[in-house]
């Protein structure tokens, strides 16, 4: 199935990312806990996937020809929930129930509870293997669907990531595109201080991947990278997206403390003001 490529509407995508950020902040404040920094840093990437690149049908979450998205860094659940709600998978009002008892919006994504979530995640390091399996399955069924997998930069310290890196390249999974949200921070500090992951791009290249490095907040660059990796044949692609943790809210940006805490009501108010401009 060859689709007619429409020109990406960058303005619309930026607007989607802005709304995603506002929803992330609102739902986290309401929940009173959760992961602010890593949800905000991924907002532009997730907006580009859900509102430009991926083929999917919110009204039919299990549509067989859909592209798949695996949020390997499952703690960034709010960015996925916001995108799914805005795309129409479920009522936006549900976002208010995040992390509350009985809610389908679990602290980390749960595929049994929420349509649109391909697989439950939360324990870091497991998503890329799952994405490989899906990509293999799609390939042998001759499906045109593609698989996207979002990883944290701290997350790639897990050994399983590198096992999966070999598998993807060994099986020439060119229907797979992984993206690293390279915000430079994890929980205990900067990745380079906790456990050095550099040089990231060279490592993936050495593992046989096609690697692109971009600014993960430049919508044109994101869209361009997603288009370019699609035509690369014979190997999996990795987009190393340089990002800022907490992006979009000046007082959260680059602050490691905001990894795992929700905004206060006052912070929310000020954050929304910044995003409304």
């Amino acid at each position: 199935m060859e689709e007619i490529k429409t020109k990406p509407d960058i303005k619309m995508l930026k607007e989607k990312a802005r709304i995603i950020r506002m929803e992330i902040l609102k739902m986290l404040t309401e929940a009173g806990s959760g992961h602010t920094g890593g949800s905000l840093s991924a907002a532009d990437i997730v907006a580009a996937l859900y509102f430009y690149k991926m083929k999917h049908k919110p009204e039919d979450p299990l549509w067989k020809d859909r592209d798949r998205f695996i949020l390997s860094k499952g703690h960034a659940a709010p960015v996925l929930y916001a995108a799914l709600a805005i795309a129409g998978y479920f009522d936006r009002k549900l976002l208010k129930t995040l992390r509350k008892i009985g809610s389908p919006l679990q602290g980390h994504p749960c595929s049994r509870k929420l349509p649109g979530v391909e697989i439950s995640t939360g324990s870091l390091g497991q998503g890329l293997s799952i994405a490989n399996g899906i990509a293999l399955g799609l390939k042998i069924s001759k499906s045109p669907s593609r698989v996207y997998c979002l990883l944290g930069d701290g997350e790639i310290q897990e050994g399983q990531i590198w096992e999966a890196a070999m598998t993807a390249s060994h099986y020439n999974l060119d229907n797979l595109c992984a993206i690293i949200d390279n915000n430079g921070l994890q929980i205990d500090g900067r990745c380079c201080d906790v456990m050095c992951i550099d040089p990231i791009a060279k490592k993936w290249e050495a593992f046989g991947w096609n690697v692109l490095e971009i600014n993960g907040h430049d919508m044109e660059a994101i869209v361009d990278a997603l288009d370019r990796v699609e035509i690369v044949k014979g190997k999996p692609s990795m987009i190393v997206a340089r990002t800022i943790k907490g992006k979009g809210v000046s007082f959260f940006e680059g602050k490691v403390e905001y990894h795992g805490i929700a905004p206060t009501n006052e912070e929310l108010e000020n954050a929304l003001k910044e995003l409304e401009i």
């Binding site: 929940a31 009173g32 806990s33 959760g34 499952g74 992390r99 679990q106 602290g107 980390h108 749960c110 439950s120 995640t121 939360g122 324990s123």
Partner: peptide, 8 residues
């Protein structure tokens, strides 16, 4: 553990 849910 609370709000983080089953995975944690």
């Amino acid at each position: 553990v609370g709000e983080d849910g089953a995975s944690h």
